[in-house]
Simulated assay, not measured.
Amino acid sequence: MLLVQGATTIPFVVPRDPVESPASWPAYLLTTLINVPLVWRRRAPVPVMFGVIAAGSAYRLALDGPGQPLPYAALIAVYTIALICSPRVRLVMWVVVTVAIVGSVALNTTTVKELLFALFVFGAAVALGRLQATRQAYTAAVEDRAAQLERANRIEAEQAAARERARIAREMHDILSHAVSIMIVQAEAGPVAVRGAPARAEAAFEAIADTGREAMAQLRTMLGVLRTEEVAQPRAPQPGIGELPALLDRVRTGGPRVSYERSGEVRELPAALEATVHRVVQEALTNVVRHAGASVVDVRLDYGPRELTVTVTDDGRGPGGERVREPAGGHGLIGIRERAAAHGGTAWTGPGPDGRGFSVRVVLVASPQEVGS
């Protein structure tokens, strides 16, 4: 509004030809009155436009003051309507402005040149208003899209963090549950063996120490991954199918007899899938040691064209006996199902063959395409 006031003041302060209309204070005050409604142009654009036209008409008819090169206030009022008003309001505005232009030209020069120039100038104001409206709509759409992407990225990061926490919880559960179960079995067998078989007792205590050291090493590896402030250090790979014999040996020491068999086309699998196989067998054996009271355990891997089936069967207390498969608050079998689902597979638990013992059967997707990836 101040810029418009400055522009309309120029004809009143520059030197004028004596034959032209004089620059009087009443004319200047009425010129200022034309600009005042622009203060409310965004809150009430249509009334402002009619106020500007009415004040301009009063100036033209009542006073013979200095003319303006352009109708600044009217152009800004038209621009504002084109910017923020609906199509219907813009149409009515253009009809009113056209009538006002024709009337103004009729009172002034009555020439086609002035008429065309006035229509062109006001048309340009309308076009600029629509271009600015399009630009603002585009900017708002870009900002909204950026906000949606930010929200989506934040949600994805939170979901990734939740998945990582669940994975770490499963790993720590498997490591600690298995190690503690083996150590408890060996510790319970040690005092009995001391009296009758010192060599066996020594082997039991060595197994306890070895199990504890291995558990500590795996925990250090996992906790080291969480220390993001430290410089990344080389980490030992996750245990795979190749480490299963060592796992079974630890269970055999002072525990049940464990057999291990592989069938089908034995082949190398992705590291993540092999780690899942190792953890599934580890958790199943942990349950056997803790709850089954079994004397024989059979671990079997069946390699199919697109699937790998892991079966762990024992001859201990089955689901119908006194055996408690998952104590209150336990997550072992849940973890097995989650690991299977992560590889597009399924997990089943229930009675063993002929209804005796207990069996854990996990089917994992291990297609050639996955192996080659």
Rank of each mutant, 00 (worst) to 15 (best):
Val4Ile: 11
Ala7Met: 08
Thr9Phe: 04
Val13Ala: 10
Val14Cys: 01
Arg16Asp: 03
Pro18Ser: 06
Val19Glu: 14
Thr32Met: 12
Val36Ile: 14
Leu38Phe: 08
Val39Cys: 02
Arg41Ser: 09
Arg41Lys: 06
Arg43Trp: 12
Val46His: 05
Pro47Arg: 05
Ala55Glu: 03
Gly56Asn: 09
Gly56Ile: 00
Ala58Lys: 02
Leu63Ser: 05
Gly67Tyr: 01
Gln68His: 14
Pro71Tyr: 09
Ile76Pro: 01
Ala77Met: 07
Val78Asn: 04
Ile81Pro: 01
Ser86Trp: 02
Arg88Asp: 13
Val89Asp: 12
Leu91Ser: 11
Ile101Glu: 13
Gly103Arg: 10
Ser104Trp: 15
Leu107Pro: 15
Lys113Ala: 13
Leu116Gln: 11
Phe117Tyr: 14
Ala118Met: 14
Ala124Pro: 03
Ala125Asp: 09
Leu128Cys: 06
Leu128Glu: 08
Gly129Arg: 04
Gly129Asp: 05
Ala137Gly: 03
Ala141Leu: 08
Val142His: 07
Arg145Asn: 10
Arg145Ala: 15
Ala146Tyr: 01
Ala147Val: 02
Asn153Phe: 00
Glu156Asn: 10
Ala160Cys: 00
Arg165Phe: 09
Ile168Val: 15
Ala169His: 12
Glu171Cys: 00
Arg195Glu: 15
Glu202Arg: 10
Phe205Asn: 03
Ala207Asn: 15
Gly212Tyr: 05
Arg213Ile: 00
Arg213Gln: 13
Gln218Tyr: 04
Arg220Lys: 09
Gln233Trp: 06
Pro237Met: 06
Gln238Leu: 15
Pro239Gln: 05
Glu243Ala: 14
Leu248Pro: 05
Val258Gly: 02
Glu261Asp: 13
Ser263Arg: 13
Gly264Ser: 04
Ala271Pro: 06
Ala284Glu: 01
Thr286Lys: 07
Val289Arg: 08
His291Ile: 00
Ala292Gln: 07
Arg306Thr: 14
Arg306Leu: 04
Leu308His: 10
Thr309Lys: 09
Thr309Asn: 06
Asp315Ser: 06
Arg317Gly: 10
Arg317Lys: 05
Pro319Gly: 03
Arg323Leu: 06
Ala328Cys: 00
Gly330Asp: 15
Leu333Gln: 06
Ile334Trp: 09
Arg339Gly: 00
Gly352Leu: 08
Pro353Glu: 13
Pro353Asp: 14
Asp354Phe: 04
Asp354Thr: 01
Leu364Lys: 02
Glu370Met: 10
